[in-house]
C-alpha cells in the first residue's frame, strides 16, 4: 500500500442544452426583470485602450448547417497583452477592458459578432512570445464538453509563423482554420472566424 494522493476528480461536464440562454442571456429569451442586462455583451467603452476591431463568424455542424442555439464566449488580453484577472502576474491590465465577452449565436444563421480590441502578445510560461490571439469557447446542445479554440489574426503573419501553438499543427490547411482573414468595414478591421465543428475544414479544437 502507498499513501493516497487525495486528489478529487473534476465534476464531469454535461451539455449546456438548447435552453442555455435562460441562465446566461435571460433578457435575450425575454425573461426580463430578473437582472438588468445580460453579461458579456459589451467589451469596449470610450476609455478602452487599443485598436478597435470586429470579430465575426458563424458556427456550422458536420453537414454544413448553421448551429443556431450555441453560446460563444471569448477571453483575451488587453492591447498590452495583459489579462484583467487576479491571476495575471505580469502587470495591471487596462481597467476599462474586461477581456471577456459572451453571446448567443443568431437563431437565424448561427452568426456571432464581438466588438473588441486587438490583443497584445502573451508570453508562454518560458517567456517565448505567442502571436496575438483570442480564446474562444463554445457550448451548445449536442456538445458534451465545451470546445476551446483560438482565433489568430491573418495580418499578424510574422508572429503567427513562430507561435508555439500554431507550430504544433502539422498541416498548413488545418492551421488556417485558426487564422481569421481580415477585411474592413466603415474603417474598422473585421476578422471573420467561421467555426466548423466537424468534417471538411474542421476547426482545430484544443485540449488545454
Amino acid at each position: 500500500m502507498v499513501q493516497s494522493l487525495d486528489y478529487l476528480k473534476e465534476s464531469p461536464s454535461q451539455t449546456a442544452g438548447p435552453y442555455v440562454h435562460i441562465g446566461t442571456n435571460p433578457n435575450w429569451v425575454e425573461i426580463t426583470g430578473v437582472w438588468k442586462a445580460d453579461l458579456g455583451l459589451v467589451l469596449v467603452g470610450p476609455q478602452t485602450r487599443g485598436e478597435r476591431i470586429l470579430v465575426e463568424g458563424r458556427l456550422f455542424d458536420g453537414l454544413g448547417e448553421p448551429v443556431r442555439d450555441a453560446l460563444v464566449e471569448i477571453w483575451q488580453a488587453d492591447a498590452a497583452g495583459l489579462h484583467n484577472s487576479p491571476a495575471e502576474t505580469r502587470g495591471k491590465a487596462d481597467p476599462a477592458f474586461a477581456g471577456w465577452g459572451r453571446q448567443p449565436v443568431s437563431g437565424v444563421d448561427g452568426s456571432f459578432r464581438f466588438e473588441t480590441v486587438r490583443p497584445g502578445s502573451v508570453p508562454m510560461p518560458d517567456g517565448r512570445p505567442q502571436a496575438p490571439h483570442i480564446t474562444v469557447w463554445i457550448v451548445a446542445r449536442g456538445i458534451n464538453l465545451g470546445l476551446h479554440t483560438r482565433l489568430y489574426f491573418a495580418d499578424e503573419a510574422a508572429a503567427n509563423a513562430t507561435d508555439p501553438l500554431l507550430q504544433r499543427i502539422p498541416s498548413p490547411e488545418r492551421r488556417q482554420t485558426l487564422i481569421a482573414p481580415r477585411t474592413e468595414r466603415d474603417g474598422l478591421p473585421v476578422f471573420t472566424f467561421d467555426i466548423r465543428l466537424q468534417g471538411e475544414r474542421e476547426t482545430v479544437f484544443l485540449d488545454i
Binding site: D61, W75, A77, H133, G142, N144, R174, Q198, V204, D207
Partner: peptide, 19 residues
C-alpha cells in the same frame, strides 16, 4: 445531436499559458 456536433479530428494539446 452529438453526432453532427462532435469534432472528428483529435484535439490539439498544449500546456496552459496565461491565456
Amino acid at each position: 445531436t452529438s453526432v453532427l456536433r462532435a469534432p472528428q479530428q483529435a484535439l490539439l494539446s498544449m500546456p496552459t499559458t496565461a491565456s
